[in-house]
């Protein structure tokens, strides 16, 4: 474990917590007897969260952590895997099933056909992988899928008029975690002999590059202290 990877995992964890906080806010808001102004805004405007991206992430974790009960690595590793699995599936459940949260989900805007991401990633994983075994192919699939899983969310943000802070922070933290992982891979390449994993590295690089324009608009909105807005 190195500082870059720990920082990456913590950033990833924070992105999940921000999303859970946002869902909690929507839930608690609608529970109020009086429609406070914030509640009114929350319930009227869409949450800006893409269910498609959340479903893709649930699939990423489900296919990445197949070995959670067979290969024990560390308590930390197992606990983090359980947190990511539990949170991603419960977020999908909330947006799909929860009577209040699903009202804030704008399915007319979240129209990205994520099937068009799943199939190519699966085919690519069948062709390019480190070992042609069931677990290895699914693990490679999860890497390719995670690289593109954010696309529905980014497209939804372009369509969402006013991106609220929590959603913007969620996407920022999600992009930052993989950027920190790239530093972790560089560090491990120089400190551990034979540590070479091109598939992981290239997927991680592509994933981070997809956030490039978001990072640009995110930082410029922070610098100019204006509302985050992605050009359509």
């Amino acid at each position: 474990m190195n500082i870059f990877r720990l920082a990456g995992d913590m950033t990833h964890l924070m992105s999940v917590l921000v999303l859970l906080l946002k869902i909690h806010t929507i839930k608690s808001c609608a529970g109020k007897s009086y429609p406070c102004s914030l509640c009114f805004i929350l319930l009227e405007s869409s949450s800006g969260i893409s269910l498609k991206t959340q479903e893709l992430y649930a699939l990423v974790f489900a296919t990445r952590y197949l070995d959670i009960f067979t290969d024990f690595i560390s308590v930390y590793n197992t606990i983090m895997k359980l947190i990511f699995l539990g949170s991603s599936f419960s977020i999908v459940w909330y947006i799909r099933r929860h009577k209040i949260v699903r009202r804030s989900y704008d399915k007319d805007q979240d129209t990205f056909r994520h099937f068009f991401l799943v199939l190519p990633c699966l085919l690519l994983a069948l062709i390019i992988n480190e070992k042609f075994t069931f677990k290895e192919v699914l693990w490679t699939f999860s890497l390719y899928l995670e690289a593109v899983a954010i696309l529905p969310q980014l497209i939804l943000l372009q369509r969402t008029r006013n991106i609220d802070n929590l959603t913007g922070q969620y996407v920022f933290l999600l992009g930052a975690y993989r950027a920190l992982y790239i530093l972790n891979w560089i560090y491990r390449y120089f400190t551990e002999p034979h540590y070479v994993h091109w598939i992981t590295w290239i997927s991680g690089l592509v994933q981070t590059l997809l956030y490039a324009d978001f990072f640009y608009y995110y930082f410029s909105s922070l610098k100019n202290n204006v509302k985050l807005k992605l050009p359509a």
Binding site: H12, D67, D71, I73, N77, E130, E192, Y195
Partner: peptide
Amino acid sequence: IPSDESKDEL
């Protein structure tokens, strides 16, 4: 069962 080291990451 020690897994290969590339799987020790999340």
